[in-house]
């Protein structure tokens, strides 16, 4: 297109016309008030849900702690192991009599070393007599 054919756009008028043509003609105040009142409720709802989640998480954490403590309290033998100064029990004996297999189930979640030891112990004792 040659420069003679170029049409001229008045920037100010074109900007104003473009803005006025694309913008809404009237403000919707009813919608403004409705949404303005809805938002705090939505925020409150979000805060409440977050608080519930936080309380549930804290409660499950403390229940877990309590449960762990309770389990280890029940396992007196393991408590005595873990409270000893050495990292592994110095001597533990499990014996079977007359070919009968005595089944002793021990559980601990406090010490991996103890857990492995108990597992080894269980495996070795269950092999006795076989």
């Amino acid at each position: 297109m040659s420069s003679a054919e170029k049409k001229t756009i008045g920037l100010k008028a074109a900007l104003r016309d473009g803005a006025m043509a694309s913008a809404p003609s009237f403000p919707d105040f009813a919608e403004v008030y409705r949404k303005a009142e809805q938002r705090p409720r939505r925020v409150r709802r979000a805060v409440l849900s977050m608080a519930i989640v936080a309380v549930a998480a804290a409660a499950s954490f403390w229940v877990g702690i309590y449960w762990n403590n309770r389990s280890s309290y029940d396992g007196a033998l393991i408590d005595s192991w873990s409270s000893s100064s050495s990292s592994a029990p110095t001597a533990v004996s499990v014996s079977t009599s007359g070919g009968e297999q005595s089944q002793v189930v021990l559980a601990s979640t406090q010490s991996t070393a103890v857990n492995l030891f108990v597992q080894d112990l269980w495996e070795s004792s269950s092999n006795v007599g076989q």
Binding site: L15, R16, G18, A19, M20, A21, S22, A23, P24, P27, D28, F29, E31, V32, K35, A36, R39
Partner: peptide, 25 residues
């Protein structure tokens, strides 16, 4: 307000309406 919002969103009528309404809120 509506002119400014419309210019900001490059004269997109849908966006301009949304922007103007959101601005009022």
């Amino acid at each position: 307000i509506r002119g400014y919002c419309a210019a900001f969103v490059a004269f997109d009528p849908e966006l301009a309406e949304e922007a103007a309404q959101e601005s009022l809120i």
